[in-house]
């Protein structure tokens, strides 16, 4: 296991008496060379989970391991230096995640400047190599972010993460801001990099079809908790948790005949507030199959078959 979390929790204090349960006890593991897709609605805590994992947020409780070594709950600058060589992140918004006052050379090369292990000319060479690798031209090095399109900026973000040659990368909605034709370019690029340098990815997105396409296993989050995890195709075509079922039913397909034949039963209600949550299943208010004890007993993760786990009382 390259990445492992045990009951990883991140709460935010808001005001004096309120706690926002962004991530609440997530236990999962990611194997070397695996792509784990993480899906869920906005506000389900997927990004917070990714950021906590790479140390951008301090953990409230729980444990996290990288290659068997426990990660600190609060990253000190020394820890950031150590682990940023192993773990990197690609952000959702290619506009706000690049410093507009830095050149592409400085943005991509910064990760090599900080540890002080590379000379100026080495950095130059490596930035040129990675620009080419992500499909940009080495001449682009002296330009500024505003001179690039969204897809090109996302490539710069990828080069910035990859130049460190990390083993694990959190991709936080890397394609949501991009056009369809460009999305496929970025996905294929990530796929190629995964093959050539042996990457392990946590792929966070809300586009279910894309996540199924990209990842080996898929995990579904709801209000800070994991509700289901399993191999992507099995989970997508045979979802077990009522929430996963509704999520996949709501996902439109680019196929008019299929769409016309589909029962249109959209999910009822909206995601409830993650502030001061009560015990019990968090999906109970929206669940079409909720039972009496769902509202006070928190469901445990149950293995329903090899590699498949679901947190729902229907399976206990």
């Amino acid at each position: 296991m390259l990445i492992e979390t045990r009951a990883l929790t991140k709460h935010f204090r808001i005001g004096s008496h309120q706690i926002l349960h962004a991530v609440d006890g997530i236990t999962l593991s990611i194997q070397e060379n695996e792509i784990l897709g993480l899906v869920g609605e906005s506000g389900s805590g997927k990004s917070t989970f990714g950021k906590t994992l790479v140390g951008l947020y301090d953990r409230t409780s729980g444990e996290a391991f990288y290659n068997g070594v426990p990660l600190p709950a609060k990253f000190k600058s020394k820890d950031h230096l150590t682990y940023s060589r192993e773990m990197q992140m690609i952000f959702q918004d290619p506009y706000s995640s690049l410093n507009p006052r830095m050149t592409v050379l400085d943005i991509i090369g910064e990760g090599l400047v900080l540890p002080g292990t590379h000379s100026r000319s080495e950095i130059h060479e490596k930035v040129a190599y990675w620009l080419e690798k992500v499909g940009l031209h080495p001449d682009h090095m002296s330009r500024y972010p505003h001179e690039f399109s969204g897809g090109q900026r996302q490539r710069i973000g990828i080069a910035r993460a990859m130049i460190i040659e990390p083993r694990f990368v959190v991709c936080d909605e890397p394609i949501s801001a991009l056009d369809v034709s460009v999305q496929a370019q970025i996905i294929n690029l990530l796929d190629e990099l995964k093959e050539s340098i042996g990457l392990t990815l946590l792929f966070i997105a809300h586009d279910l079809s894309m996540v199924r396409y990209v990842s080996h296993r898929m995990a579904v989050m709801y209000l800070g908790t994991l509700v289901e995890i399993g191999p992507s195709n099995e989970l997508f075509f045979d979802p077990q948790h009522p929430y996963t079922q509704l999520l996949i039913e709501s996902n439109p397909e680019p196929d008019p005949v299929l769409e016309r034949s589909r029962p249109h039963t959209p999910i009822k209600g909206e995601i409830t507030s993650p502030i001061n949550v009560k015990p019990g299943c968090r999906f109970v208010d929206r669940c079409p199959r909720a039972m009496a004890h769902c509202s006070h007993e928190t469901p445990e993760f149950i293995a329903t078959s090899k590699d498949r786990y679901v947190a729902c009382h229907l399976f206990s």
Partner: peptide
Amino acid sequence: FYESAHPYTMGLKEAMPTNKPNEERKLMPI
């Protein structure tokens, strides 16, 4: 969708993932 006649329309469709069991198709970016 089914009788696309312009290469751009086809390109858009091939750049998107579809969900058909037992069908693995590589995404074709434009």
